Structures are given as C-alpha cells and as structure tokens.
Deep mutational scan, measured.
Amino acid sequence: MAAGGDHGSPDSYRSPLASRYASPEMCFVFSDRYKFRTWRQLWLWLAEAEQTLGLPITDEQIQEMKSNLENIDFKMAAEEEKRLRHDVMAHVHTFGHCCPKAAGIIHLGATSCYVGDNTDLIILRNALDLLLPKLARVISRLADFAKERASLPTLGFTHFQPAQLTTVGKRCCLWIQDLCMDLQNLKRVRDDLRFRGVKGTTGTQASFLQLFEGDDHKVEQLDKMVTEKAGFKRAFIITGQTYTRKVDIEVLSVLASLGASVHKICTDIRLLANLKEMEEPFEKQQIGSSAMPYKRNPMRSERCCSLARHLMTLVMDPLQTASVQWFERTLDDSANRRICLAEAFLTADTILNTLQNISEGLVVYPKVIERRIRQELPFMATENIIMAMVKAGGSRQDCHEKIRVLSQQAASVVKQEGGDNDLIERIQVDAYFSPIHSQLDHLLDPSSFTGRASQQVQRFLEEEVYPLLKPYESVMKVKAELCL
C-alpha cells in the first residue's frame, strides 16, 4: 500500500493539533497551500530580480507567473513527485505547466533550498508574528487579574506546605514575570531571523556568478533584492546548502521555554482548584465526569500541561538535527523538520489560546482563602504575639514557653481530632496574655502579614508589564474561544 493518505478522510490519521486544537490561522501558515504558494512567490521574486539585473526574462513571463501564483494543481504535483521522487522539481514542473512561456526560467540558477529553506524562514517569521500578540493578550488578562487582587491576602506555599502570606495578585505576578520573559525572547528570536537568500547549491553562489558572467556586484544585488522582497532586513552571508540548523534550535528553545512557563502556571491553577481557592472557567453544560456528576475538573489547565510537556520535548529534535548536518548538509534534517517545526508552533498556539481562555474567566473564592488563612495564621502570628507581650512588660522566655504549650495543644486538636485551630481562643482565655487581649485582632490582621506584596504588584505592572504590552494595544480586544 502506498504511503500517505487522504487526510480529510475519517479513515486516515490526522494530527489532533490540526484537527482538534490549533487555530485556523496557525494551521494555514503550515498548510501545503501556504507552503507551495510561497515557493511560487519566491520563484517570481527571483525572476523579477534577475530581470532587473539584466537576464533575458520578459515582462510577459513575469506576468504569467504572477497570474498563476494561486493556480496550484495539487493532484498534478503529487503525481509528479511520485514520478520524480523530488518535491521541488515536482512543483517546478507543475508551475511550468500553467506558465508555459515562463517554464524555462522558473528556478533559474537556484537549488531546492532556495524555495525550501527560504519558505521555512518566512513561515517561522509569520508563525512567530501570530504567537506574539496571543502571548501579549494572556499577559494582559493576567495583569488585569493581578491588579484587581493585588491586596487580597492568601496563604503562600513553599514545598506545598503553608508559608508566609502573600497576595493573590502577587502570586499571579510570578506567572506574568515568566511570560514577559517569554514574550521578550519570542520577539528577540523573531527579529534575529535572517533570510537564507540566493546562495546556490553549497552556499557559494557559483551558479549565479556564472549567470551574471562573473559580476560579483550583481550577485550581491540579486541576494539583497530577493531578501528585501521577502520582507527581511538581512540575509546570511555564510550558508551551506541550507541555512544553519542552529536557527531551528533557537526558535524551538524559546517555544519550549514558553511551554515550561505555561505548565507551571496551569499546575498552580490545578492545585488551587483542589484547594477550592480558584477555578478555571466551567461552562453551564460542561460535564466533569461521566460517573461523578459533582466533579469540576480543571480540564483546560490539564490540557495545557499535557501539550506543554510535548512542546518542551520537541527542542531535542533540532538539537540532534543540527549535530548531524555533515559538511554542507545531509538530508537527516528533512523529514524531522517537516514534523517538529509545525508541531512546535501548533502546540504553542494551542496552549496560548487555551491559557487566554482560562485567564479571561478565572474565578476566585475569597471566603475559602480566608478560612485557610484562619487555619494557619495563628501559628504564624506567634512571633508577633511574643513581641507584643514583651512590649507590655512580659518575659520573652516565659511567653515563648506559654505559646509553645498552647500551640501544641491547638495542633493536637487540628491533627488528632480534625478540629479547627483554636490557638487564639486559648490565648484569649489565658490570664497571662490579658495585657494584649485587646491587640489580638490587630495582630491577626492578614494584611499585616503580606509585606509589600501589593506595592510590588503595582510597581511591576507599571514599570515592566504595561510598557512591554504597549506595541500590542491594537490587538488586545480579541477574545479566545474554545470549541473543545
């Protein structure tokens, strides 16, 4: 049975990233139509530049190519590739079939990587351009969430054990800070992308030097003109047959890092959902379990974690691919890159769409948070109580021993009897502590235990987050809708 299948058929496997999760716009960027249309555009740009620099290419040939950029006979191309065992030459023939007058000058002087690699770089750039505003929107939604809850005390956790208090907004800023680093890295790697350009079979530009009869300047002009037509500021000066596969490492490393950030955020949300302090959106008709109707599973956060793990592992592909590119190139890269580049971007696209949807509907339960604080705060307040007693004339050592005994009794009630923490009640009825009984409410005010959390939130948002989001103001209103 021949390899390949009808990918629109229910009898043929289709990647869930495309069929179930990723956005239509990201799927289109990695589609065959987008790819092969870009090949034709690159052939047109090459012909236009070659004509401008004096090669015998007519206006009629150029116009014929322009008129057929979208006229792609995919069936013919597939048949040609089956016959020739070469995808680029299959599309040269297919393009030439609908451009008979231009057929002889299509791909003039070029090698397969002229269309293959340059198209990949265009796709990487455009895919990054799709991700950047999506990530900015996630940051914006979380920034709104953090600002609104900047002063809401909550129990902090280290080692997932109760620690000092923080605020809900401050905790959210930990998430935002990681995503801001990801946004900066995505922008950097996007701006650092260079075009492969017009380089020939081993990167020496020998074929173009021959076409222009040894004119170095025209060869350099050709490279520059096509690079500018493709919208790049610069091209690699040095290439082998391909652009260095280190570029793929750079791009997928940034995406993998984004995956790590999203995994951490969504894990926190899942843990908070278990504590009943916070939940992701839950639709009115949504079913959490087929057997347990009360369940409210954090399905979206779980999906993000599941896909983020996949995204983090994909960076190993370009690392290994770059390491086995012998001399000017081997074909070890080809099949692998067809999979890992598309999957990385479709996965990143999915987790950003999902995280935006989550961040637009996060639900906080202040009463649950308050109750958990009441359970733990008495123990945390013991040092403040000791200091207040010393100020009232008591002995630190005597007070410490009193607190120690009462704390152990209260802990026994919590752990052995399943009761509430009654340390404060014990202190309130103990005559030894009568000098500070009137101060206990103040000493137990949760806001006095959150330090500068709310001020940190305000400063972080104003100095770091809002300036970073400013270039994306025009796209901030787009909502994230999930079908599944």
Score class of each variant (00 low, 15 high):
484 L>M: 14
80 E>P: 05
156 G>K: 02
467 P>W: 09
65 M>L: 03
306 S>F: 01
281 P>T: 01
261 S>Y: 02
195 F>G: 08
213 E>K: 13
258 L>S: 06
32 D>W: 09
383 E>Y: 02
325 Q>C: 11
362 L>P: 04
51 Q>A: 05
206 A>I: 06
254 V>T: 12
20 R>D: 04
481 E>R: 13
448 S>C: 15
230 A>W: 04
220 E>Y: 08
172 C>L: 08
72 I>D: 11
386 I>P: 01
399 C>A: 12
448 S>D: 14
332 D>Y: 15
76 M>A: 10
231 G>L: 12
308 A>E: 02
340 C>K: 03
310 H>G: 08
161 Q>D: 00
208 F>Y: 05
196 R>D: 12
234 R>V: 15
36 F>P: 02
317 D>A: 09
372 R>D: 00
9 S>D: 12
354 T>D: 08
385 I>K: 02
437 H>P: 00
18 A>Q: 09
16 P>M: 14
91 H>I: 03
99 C>I: 07
160 F>N: 11
50 E>N: 07
7 H>W: 08
140 S>R: 13
51 Q>F: 03
236 F>I: 04
371 R>G: 02
240 G>R: 04
166 T>D: 03
100 P>L: 11
47 A>K: 04
278 M>E: 00
340 C>A: 14
123 I>K: 07
392 A>F: 04
163 A>R: 01
369 I>K: 01
409 Q>K: 11
310 H>R: 08
463 E>S: 11
372 R>G: 04
148 E>A: 12
354 T>G: 12
205 Q>F: 05
462 E>F: 14
58 T>E: 06
85 R>S: 02
292 M>E: 01
439 Q>K: 04
335 A>H: 06
232 F>H: 01
340 C>D: 00
319 L>F: 02
478 V>K: 10
209 L>N: 15
252 L>E: 05
119 T>I: 13
334 S>I: 04
442 H>Y: 08
465 V>R: 04
308 A>R: 00
89 M>R: 01
443 L>H: 05
264 K>M: 03
195 F>A: 05
207 S>C: 14
167 T>W: 03
158 T>D: 00
191 D>W: 05
105 I>G: 04
164 Q>C: 04
242 T>K: 05
449 F>C: 03
279 E>R: 03
184 Q>Y: 07
140 S>V: 14
352 L>I: 10
144 D>G: 12
422 D>V: 14
11 D>E: 10
102 A>T: 14
302 E>K: 00
143 A>D: 01
262 V>A: 15
475 V>Q: 13
145 F>S: 14
110 A>S: 06
337 R>M: 05
399 C>V: 09
315 V>A: 04
72 I>K: 03
130 L>N: 06
51 Q>M: 07
59 D>L: 06
352 L>T: 15
87 D>K: 00
440 L>G: 05
240 G>V: 03
310 H>A: 13
412 S>V: 15
25 E>A: 12
113 C>L: 08
131 L>S: 14
76 M>E: 14
477 K>D: 06
66 K>S: 07
3 A>P: 04
230 A>E: 00
301 S>G: 15
393 G>T: 14
229 K>T: 05
157 F>S: 08
449 F>L: 06
383 E>A: 01
88 V>I: 15
122 I>F: 09
22 A>F: 11
297 N>M: 01
112 S>L: 04
224 K>Q: 01
440 L>M: 10
46 L>V: 09
340 C>Q: 00
380 M>N: 15
46 L>T: 03
232 F>V: 01
13 Y>M: 15
210 Q>P: 13
378 P>C: 07
89 M>E: 03
12 S>A: 13
157 F>E: 04
305 C>Y: 02
62 I>H: 04
241 Q>C: 04
341 L>H: 11
187 K>Q: 08
361 G>W: 00
227 T>F: 15
450 T>S: 04
268 D>E: 12
474 S>F: 14
483 C>N: 15
460 F>K: 00
292 M>P: 02
13 Y>W: 14
127 A>V: 10
15 S>N: 10
398 D>M: 10
234 R>E: 15
445 D>E: 13
74 F>C: 13
269 I>C: 01
79 E>G: 13
304 C>P: 07
202 T>E: 09
365 Y>R: 10
137 R>Y: 14
303 R>F: 00
318 P>I: 01
453 A>V: 09
182 D>I: 00
274 N>K: 02
429 V>K: 04
91 H>C: 07
109 G>F: 01
258 L>D: 01
369 I>S: 10
184 Q>A: 12
249 I>G: 03
352 L>K: 02
276 K>S: 06
31 S>C: 08
467 P>G: 10
250 E>N: 09
443 L>K: 02
383 E>F: 02
170 K>A: 03
22 A>V: 09
